[in-house]
Amino acid sequence: MKKLLIIGYGKWGKKIVKNLINAKVYNEIYIKTKNAYYQCDFRLIKKKTSIDIPLKKYDRVHICVPTNQHYSVLQNYINIKNLSIEKPLFNQLKFFKKLKKKTIKVNYTDLYNPITKFFFKNVKEEKITTINLDYCGKYFFHDQYIFLDEWLDHPLSLLFSIFNKIQLKKIKTFKIDRVKKLNIFEAILKYNNLNIKISLKTNLVKKRLITLITKTNDKIIYDFSKNKIFKNKKLFYKANTTSIENFFKLRNKRSEKIQIESLNFHKKIFKFKRKILLKSKKELPI
């Protein structure tokens, strides 16, 4: 009987529970909030329970509390072998320095999307000239500080995963522009001979697209919202599973390695964002 403990039941806690119940990844799902302890059944009904299950009996603990509570909550579960946490891991550098645990899986949804393995397999630096990341959603950021701090982790996690040997010193330019009338943020990167553009637009319809332009002028579109890949406007691949399912199914022999990589990615992303903010004279809190 596989057991999962969710810490916190806000926006992301509810999403994760719903997806996992539909996917039947765990037999028993428990939810711990500030004031109560619940067990969730297959109908998405959470029932208050007094059952006190020892932490070692859980197959995984997943932390879904607000970011400013991550470090304090982590201290209560630091000895759990399989520990997951929602992004961003921390919003202050001092917590990274204090963290002793080496294996934490940080949930970047797109990294666990079923089409991601095709993405990593086919994206070869020497074969492409342009990468455009287009995201739409109900985001509304008033300045570049919030844009960087709250959101940029998503596309950067994909870029750093594709080019896992990426060196920040090789990024020649990084600038952020905003079209105020349309509320569009654009981040422009230049890495070796690659042109990379990250766009975020406020829209009622959620969308996450990555477009690759190859040297042979092929246009490959990865639609992370619909789990589909298109090549030259024709459907190339369609996945049947969800990102959340894949996130929790990665418990094989590589599980610990994946968690270490996940933590290292987050540290790299945090340092990169901080470097950009320092250039713009808006420093993250230390």
Rank of each mutant, 00 (worst) to 15 (best):
I210T: 12
I78T: 04
L212G: 12
K271E: 15
K207I: 12
S262G: 02
Y108A: 14
Y135V: 09
I146M: 13
N192Q: 15
Y112M: 00
I53V: 07
I213G: 09
I210D: 02
T173W: 08
K206Q: 08
I258Q: 01
V61G: 04
N35V: 00
K206F: 11
N227H: 04
K257C: 08
K121N: 07
Y191M: 06
F141C: 10
Q144W: 12
D177N: 13
I260C: 01
L99F: 09
R274P: 00
K257R: 08
I221M: 03
T33C: 06
K215R: 09
I220D: 02
E256N: 06
P66S: 06
L277Q: 07
Q259V: 02
I21F: 00
Y9C: 10
S72H: 11
S199I: 11
D52V: 15
K249W: 04
V73E: 06
Y37Q: 07
K169V: 15
K215Y: 12
K201Q: 10
S72G: 11
I286S: 13
K117Y: 13
S84E: 06
N232K: 10
E261S: 04
L55N: 04
H62W: 05
L111G: 01
I176L: 09
K215W: 08
S50A: 11
K15N: 13
T216G: 00
K2W: 00
S225Y: 12
S50F: 07
P114W: 01
T216V: 05
K127I: 06
L4I: 10
D52P: 03
P155D: 11
K253S: 10
I21P: 06
L200C: 14
I229Q: 06
D143P: 04
Q75R: 14
K181E: 04
K117S: 15
I166V: 05
L55E: 11
E86R: 00
T67I: 09
E86F: 00
V106P: 00
I213W: 03
I184T: 07
P285S: 09
Y71F: 10
S280E: 12
E256A: 14
S199N: 11
L168M: 15
V17D: 02
I213H: 12
K105V: 07
A36N: 15
K102R: 05
K100E: 14
K275N: 13
K267V: 05
N195P: 00
Y30V: 05
N193Y: 13
T109F: 11
S280D: 09
I85A: 08
R251D: 05
K181M: 09
S199E: 14
K282G: 01
S72V: 10
K32F: 03
K181L: 05
F147G: 13
L204A: 10
N76I: 02
